[in-house]
């Protein structure tokens, strides 16, 4: 019979019931006589599919039975408040659904945030852009960004609406690929790209905060990085240290150190000599 260890969650084959050790992690467990029956006082044993949360699918992956809106909302709430449970229940064969969730969440929130910023908040954010662009090595870049985000023509809005999902799709796969590469290099990719992608996709839930211009993107990004670590830990069944290292390594090595950016922005805002 097939059995699953409640400690390491690896599935293994056994020909007897009762107390025994997991062949993978060597921890003791009890295989019940009847599937799904957990003896009193014994360590709970999980038959594949017997636990209500393990790889049953997230609410979004079960949206056919729950309804799209309820499934989406429950997934967001779980991602934000009970990420461990969400990532444990993620099915790795539902890549298309996970892509849809991330594109819908990030694309929608980004578009709403951009609209709010361009049409209602520009008079307050524009001076900030100009101040940042006034000095520093990144000055010309900030000025170009300010000019690009000032456009409120119909053409610009349509272009933004069309290109945002595509940009989110590219960003999602780039993020997953870089994170997976880091996990592979650190020996933490135990269950393949599908597991990394699921973690990255559902970790996008806090990016709903992109709809809040200004601080939303900063808070959402930081939260997403943390959730990606939680997600990697659960989907790859690895330790918290390995998961954290796999998530942070790309930011340190590949993605242009965030601290350098902060330092630079601080220098630009204060107009320090270069």
């Amino acid at each position: 019979m097939l059995a699953r260890c409640p400690s390491c969650r690896n599935t293994f084959s056994t020909d007897r019931t009762g107390p025994q050790d997991c062949p993978v992690c060597k921890k003791p467990l009890v295989v019940p006589d009847a599937p799904g029956v957990v003896p009193t006082g014994a360590q709970p044993f999980l038959q594949p599919g017997a636990d209500s949360s393990v790889e049953q699918g997230t609410p979004w992956e079960r949206r056919a039975e729950l309804g799209a809106w309820r499934a989406y909302w429950e997934t967001v709430v779980q991602a934000v408040f009970e990420p461990g449970q969400l990532f444990r229940s993620t099915r790795l064969d539902r890549g298309a659904a996970q892509t849809g969730f991330a594109v819908l969440t990030v694309g929608g929130a980004w578009f709403v945030g951009q609209m709010l910023d361009r049409f209602f908040l520009r008079q307050w954010t524009q001076p900030l852009f100009e101040k940042l662009g006034g000095s520093g090595a990144m000055g010309p870049l900030w000025q170009k960004m300010a000019a690009a985000s000032r456009d409120t023509s119909v053409r610009a809005i349509i272009l933004l609406a069309v290109l945002t999902p595509l940009a989110v799709l590219i960003g999602l796969y780039l993020n997953a690929a870089v994170t997976h590469l880091a996990a592979v290099l650190l020996g933490q990719a135990k269950r393949g790209f599908d597991a990394t992608f699921a973690a990255c996709a559902y970790a996008c839930a806090p990016l709903l905060l992109l709809a809040i211009p200004g601080c939303g993107s900063i808070v959402g990004t930081a939260w997403t990085i943390v959730l990606t670590g939680v997600g990697l830990k659960e989907t790859h069944r690895i330790g918290p240290g390995g998961a954290a290292a796999a998530v942070i390594a790309p930011y340190v090595l590949l993605c242009c150190a965030v601290c350098a950016l902060g330092l630079l922005l601080g220098m630009a805002a204060r107009g320090l000599p270069q």
Binding site: A137, M138, A147, L254, C256, A257, A260
Partner: peptide, 21 residues
């Protein structure tokens, strides 16, 4: 020209060294 010219590297601007990418 934008948007590709917006991909400036803050690491390089801060340290004058290129990043890995």
């Amino acid at each position: 020209a934008p948007p590709l010219s917006l991909f400036a590297c803050p690491f390089r601007a801060a340290t004058s060294l290129p990043c890995l990418s």
